[in-house]
Structure formats: structure tokens, C-alpha cells
Design a protein around this nucleic acid. Structure first.
Lengths: 196, 196
DNA sequence: GAAAACATGTAACCGGTTACATGATTCT
DNA sequence: AGAATCATGTAACCGGTTACATGTTTTC
């Protein structure tokens, strides 16, 4: 149920509409926690019902309206409680490594395609994470800037440091996956040459 | 829906009961794909219904019985089809990194506890993967030995090589996570000393 | 005789996926 | 006028989790 806490984290910085949240899930937070809009809007309603958020309807243009969500004190307390609680780890469910461990069943070309797709997949992730890391370093991160505005001066260094550390970890992970897949490609070639 | 294919992979080696499969999911395959028994038994029934497996009831003791599942030709074909198909990647949903990126909200001791738990978590995984890798190298892997028995001689090198490569990747991943968490611990200490 | 291992499930629930559905506003 | 973006959902489905439930056989 981390979706709830990802939303609280975002709304702790500033009030937003569901649509704003949706965009954050498509970029910043989305790199560690994915959520489709079909999950975001209903969750916002549930959270308001639970007293973690409050909302106001704002007029937009002639006929339009939008709903502005803000975190309540209960919401902030709940987020802090979650932050001080241990992480709940998900069970392993790793389709790429599952398939990799039975690759002798695949055609050599399919095996190569699999590793190439793995490289592509993590190259994409890597680029996004590098981009985020660059934005943090350069002070160009919109989200982080807003966060720093509402962060007391003596906590800003922490905020930046933890963000950077997180992205460093994700970058290292992506690089590791890419080099593993490269080794895989070399392995397929070597086994093909051997024609054992 | 990889559970189905993990089951096919196991039954491609030898016929088994649901209980046998359950044990494999608690050890070997379980390291890349988790499944509880409440999922295994119903899935076996569905797979039999779909013609991928066939089963026979075997008498066990005086009153007991057990169901022996074997892969059908359709099952083998379906597994091979899946193996030649691209991997479907899951969306990111990473509770540890989600929390890590907002650690300035946590108490320093809770932050330390989080990183220590991360180290413990991946140390546990690492040990199991190293154990598997050692068994493969030493020829002591029960599952791999059975697989090699039903593998034509000219395919055995492949089978071993892909298994080893998979575990090498998992080991590298675990090591990376551990060193990231160690850096996290050092970071918390440094920020605490700075008392900014 | 007791404990460990063998053996097989059901039920309620929930988080997440996919597809569908609609309309307003702003920018070019 | 048309495209892009803003804005908000519903519905059916399914994979996975947690808890419950029960009985047999083998080993010590």
C-alpha cells in the first residue's frame, strides 16, 4: 500500500490536483513507484475519506472545475509514522532472471534478443535516473526546489543528500543489469561458436 | 502470468506432485519467482484443464493419495513458445528506494534501521544465491543434475552456463544493494555529525 | 507417542492492469 | 479549426496475499 505514502510524500510539499499527481507519477516518483490514473483518483477519494487529505473544488474556465487536494495534519502524522517504520519487502518476482535461467530452451537469436531488450530496458531507466540526478545537482529539479522551499534551512542538506543517494543506487543498479546482459550476449555467442 | 511458465520449466524436467513443486518454489525457482501453495494447487488444476499438464492419482500408504503431474506435448510447446518470446517487464514498484528518497522525514535511528534491514535482507538473498552457485559449480545441485539427465549431451554446457550466468547476475545485484545501503548508513552518520 | 514432513486445498480480500469513456480548455 | 493538454473517472478482471482448514505418513 505504498501508493498512499507516495501520494502523501508529494502532497506534503504542496497541494495539487489529481492530474498534477498523475504527471509526477509519470516522471519523478514514477521512477520508484508506478501508478496509473485508474488507481490515483480512487485512492485520493479513499484518503480524503480516511481524513488524510482534504479537498476543495476550484472553478476552471467557463464550465470546468478541478479538485485541489491538500494533506491534513493526520496525513502528515501518518506519513511520518510510515517513514519511521521498517520497509516491507515484496517477494521476488523477476521475469527476466526466471527466463534467463532456462535459456537453453530458447533459440540463440531469441536469447540474444532477450539480452538486447534487457540492455535497452535498463538503458532507458538509466537515462531517466541520470537525468534526475543531473537536475538535482544543477538545482533544476522542479519538485526538489518546491520541497526545499518548505524545508527548514537546517534540513535542506539532508533532503538533497538522500535524494542523490537514492538515485545513485538506482543508477548503479541499472549499470549492473546492463553489464550482466552484455555478458549474456557474449555467452550466447561463445556457446554458438562452440557448437557443442 | 510467469507462475505458469515456472511450473512448466520444473515439470519439463520430471513429473512431480504439487507438494514437490511447492518445495522447489521454497528453494531453487523461489529465488527468482515466489509462489505460495494457495496459488500453486489451483494453477495446476487450471493448467491441466488447459491441456498443458496431465495428472494421475497415486496411492500413498493406507488411506492417502497424491496427484502426480506431468507436462504434455502441448505444455512443452507452450513453454518453448514463451522462452522465445520477449520478456514482459513489470512496472517499477520499489518500496525501499521510495522510502530512501524521503529519508529526511525519518528519525536518524529509523533511517539507520532501514539501511541495516536492507543489508540484512540482501545478505540473506546473497547467501542463498551463493549457495546455489556453489552447488552448480560442485555438481551438487539436485535440480540441475536431474535436468542434465534429460538434456542431450551437446546441450549440457549451455544449461550449466545459463544457470551460472543467472546466479552471477543475482549475486552482483545483491552485492550492489548491500554496498548502497552501507553508503546510506555512512551518509546518515555524516549528516548527524554535521548537525546542520 | 510425538513431532516432522507429506499432502491438498478454500475463501475473502486487495492491489494492480487493461480497456473504456467523456468532456473542457488552451495553444497554435 | 484542430491538436495538445487538462481533467476525472468507471468496470471487469486477474494475480497475489493472508488466513484458515484438515488429514496422513514417516521418522525419531
Amino acid at each position: 500500500m505504498s501508493l498512499r505514502y507516495a501520494i502523501l510524500a508529494l502532497l506534503a510539499v504542496q497541494p495539487m490536483t489529481g492530474y498534477d499527481l498523475r504527471r509526477r507519477f509519470a516522471s519523478s516518483v514514477g521512477h520508484v513507484w508506478h501508478a496509473p490514473d485508474s488507481q490515483i483518483y480512487p485512492e485520493l477519494k479513499k484518503m480524503e475519506h480516511a481524513g488524510l487529505l482534504s479537498s476543495t473544488s476550484v472553478v476552471r474556465g467557463e464550465h470546468g472545475s478541478k479538485r485541489w487536494y491538500r494533506i491534513t495534519d493526520d496525513g502528515t502524522a501518518e506519513f511520518r509514522r510510515w517513514m519511521n517504520e521498517p520497509v516491507v519487502y515484496r517477494r521476488v518476482r523477476d521475469p527476466a532472471h526466471l527466463k534467463a535461467s532456462y535459456l537453453e530452451w530458447a533459440e540463440p537469436d531469441a536469447a540474444r534478443a532477450m539480452f538486447r531488450a534487457h540492455i535497452e530496458h535498463f538503458t532507458g531507466e538509466l537515462e531517466q535516473w541520470l537525468q534526475q540526478a543531473r537536475e538535482i545537482d544543477g538545482g533544476a529539479s522542479e519538485m526538489l526546489s518546491s520541497r526545499l522551499e518548505v524545508t527548514p534551512a537546517n534540513r535542506r542538506a539532508r533532503t538533497i543528500a538522500f535524494k542523490k543517494h537514492t538515485y545513485a543506487g538506482l543508477i548503479a543498479r541499472a549499470e549492473q543489469e546492463i553489464s550482466w546482459a552484455r555478458e549474456g550476449l557474449a555467452l550466447v555467442d561463445a556457446l554458438d561458436d562452440a557448437e557443442d
